[in-house]
């Protein structure tokens, strides 16, 4: 009887663990995709590109001097 109870507790705990992991994986998939898409947004890219554009402007100014 005790053995059956222990096995039952482990089985329930295992089921909760697997459900939690699956849910976490599903959520992390969503979060990762959202992060990925956000990182590609024009606003996020502008920061990197403005740096190069301002660098080019500086180079042009030096070239003209």
């Amino acid at each position: 009887m005790t053995w059956l109870f222990i096995i039952g507790v482990f089985a329930v705990a295992g089921a909760f663990y697997l459900y939690g992991r699956r849910k976490h994986r599903r959520e992390s998939g969503l979060t990762n995709f959202q992060r990925h898409i956000d990182a590609l947004s024009p606003e996020r890219r502008r920061e990197s590109f403005d740096r190069v554009r301002s660098q080019n402007r500086d180079d042009d100014q030096w070239g003209r001097r």
Partner: peptide, 15 residues
């Protein structure tokens, strides 16, 4: 510049 953007946001874009 595209690759540079990936290095700026390495963790988000490593996929």
């Amino acid at each position: 510049m595209g690759a540079g953007h990936c290095i700026e946001h390495y963790d988000a874009l490593k996929g």
